[in-house]
Simulated assay, not measured.
Amino acid sequence: MSRILTGAAALVISTVAAFADMPVLRAQVLKFGTVNWELDTIKHHGLDTANGFDLQVTGVAGGAAAKVAFQGGATDVIVSDWLWVARQRAAGKDYVFIPYSKAVGGVMVPEGSPAQSLADLKGDKIGIAGGPLDKSWLILQAYAQQQYGFDLAAETEQVFGAPPLIFKTALQGDLGGAINFWHFMAKMGASGMRQLVSVGDAAEALGLDSETPLLGYVVTGEMLAEHPELVAGLSAASRSAKDMLAGNDAEWDRLRGRMNAKTDAQFEALKAGFRAGIPAEGPVDEEAAARMLALMVELGGEDLLGAATELPEGVFVKPGS
């Protein structure tokens, strides 16, 4: 005997069927990355399905693993900086960048440090999150040379390591200075350390635009060409989540459990730092980006940017493309 479903039961079945037909966007991101706060907001409020896709997020231990998965087609979306995208495009790979954050780190020193400038770190041990080609480290070296005629690399001892290790070592007082990602820097400040200089201020002194978003979602040009509605949907969901996080403290209270904030001060610093890093809507200023790339070519050369010597066409997804 057949049975006709009506009311709520029929609605559930039709909703499930529609959801099953919805395209999936697979994202791989760092487990401890701040992008998880935005992605959590997207999923919690259904901003993905409202924009025509089902977002599926996988956490990975390192950025290199996400890049390998992306290049091998095992994921659709990763988070990286646009300089990496520029390098890949110069090598013939059709990747494109959707802005996510303009937040940058800086140099933190112990609360009682007498240092007032980078030149005062002469002879000190500096912890650096990343490696010798870390963009913040390169910018700070150029800034120290420009402002003080000071060779930051030659006159200090560098310790390179993962962001959590640099954070922990700095709080133990084992470093004269520490260069870390913005969210670790925010927690360091909330724990009593003092900012000596931000990478944003250093970049502006070098003629760069601190409003240029460095980090973003990376997708393939093939996806943009064949499914522009998916790329537009991801951009729209990201912006909606940012709007929520920019103006609604209750959203942050909900996220607090995954933010690894040990104190109220750390929680407030992380919230303020994320909000400060939200980029303006609209297209990326490509002239400003070209200036940044030119400086990175000068400082990091082929080791950092491969064959990219100027900004390739098509790095940034343009609104409406």
Rank of each mutant, 00 (worst) to 15 (best):
A308G: 04
G233E: 01
P319N: 12
M1Q: 11
M244I: 12
G273R: 03
M193Y: 05
S2E: 15
E287K: 15
P114Q: 01
G177H: 10
T41E: 11
P213G: 04
L55V: 02
A237H: 00
T309D: 12
A178C: 02
G273L: 03
D134N: 15
F53L: 07
H227R: 12
V284R: 09
G46M: 05
L39F: 00
A154K: 09
G176D: 08
D94G: 08
P23G: 07
F184R: 06
A27Y: 02
G33M: 09
Y95K: 09
A65Y: 13
A69E: 03
D48S: 07
F53H: 01
K135I: 14
G216I: 04
L165T: 13
N36M: 00
R194H: 10
W137Q: 01
I13Y: 14
F184I: 02
G247R: 13
V317E: 04
L299A: 05
Q147M: 13
T156M: 05
V315I: 05
V159K: 12
F70Y: 04
F167A: 08
A186G: 09
W252L: 06
G320I: 01
V159Y: 11
H45Y: 15
G149Y: 02
Q116V: 15
A276H: 06
Q88S: 08
R275D: 13
D81F: 01
P164F: 06
L175Y: 11
G221Y: 00
M244W: 06
L293P: 03
S210K: 12
I139E: 11
G207W: 02
G207S: 05
L140H: 04
L175D: 11
L152E: 02
D249Y: 09
L118H: 06
T212P: 00
G73N: 05
L245K: 08
L295C: 07
D253G: 06
L47S: 00
D174F: 10
L270K: 03
L224T: 00
M1E: 12
E281Q: 15
G207Q: 01
S14E: 15
A8Q: 14
S238K: 13
E229P: 05
L165F: 14
L25Q: 01
T156R: 01
D243S: 10
K31D: 14
V197W: 08
S101C: 09
V231K: 08
M22K: 08
K93N: 15
G314W: 03
K102T: 07
K135G: 06
L293E: 03
A142W: 03
L39C: 03
L25H: 04
T34M: 10
R254I: 00
V85G: 04
N248D: 11
A20I: 08
G73C: 10
H227Q: 12
T34A: 10
A178M: 02
P110G: 05
G282L: 09
Y100M: 11
S210Q: 11
Q28M: 10
G314R: 02
M259I: 00
V231S: 08
A10R: 15
L83S: 04
P163W: 03
V12S: 13
P110S: 04
P283H: 09
I42N: 04
V231W: 02
Q172L: 14
H44G: 09
L208K: 04
T156V: 05
L118C: 10
S117G: 12
D253Y: 11
G59Q: 03
R291F: 11
E155A: 15
R89N: 06
N36V: 00
M193W: 05
A162P: 12
H44T: 11
L208C: 08
E268G: 09
V199A: 06
H45P: 10
W82N: 02
Q158R: 11
P110Y: 00
W137R: 07
A178I: 01
